[in-house]
């Protein structure tokens, strides 16, 4: 009788640990920002194409 009681408490302990771990993982996943969206925001801040004197000169050389 004594041995069955100790088995039961160990099960409860393992169940509690498992549930706690699952809850912690779910919380972390929900909190983490999607990396892809973060990367694409960096692109929108990029300077990109802008008409400079250098580019105007290039366009003029192509008309020869």
């Amino acid at each position: 009788m004594k041995s069955s009681h100790s088995k039961l408490s160990r099960r409860n302990f393992l169940l509690a640990v498992g549930a706690g771990g699952a809850a912690a993982t779910a919380a972390l996943v929900a909190k983490a920002p999607p990396t892809q969206i973060k990367k694409k925001e960096a692109v929108s801040g990029s300077k990109g194409y802008h008409l400079t004197e250098h580019i105007r000169k290039y366009y003029s050389t192509t008309k020869v």
């Binding site: 990109g48 580019i55 050389t61 192509t62």
Partner: peptide, 28 residues
């Protein structure tokens, strides 16, 4: 990143006969 430097692709700028055009689609 030549575009951010205010330049166009090196291949197009380097082309000796200007056979390869690169840049604003309307202009080229």
């Amino acid at each position: 990143n030549r575009l951010a430097e205010g330049k166009l692709p090196a291949c197009a700028e380097m082309c000796s006969t200007k056979a390869l055009l690169g840049g604003d689609a309307d202009v080229i």
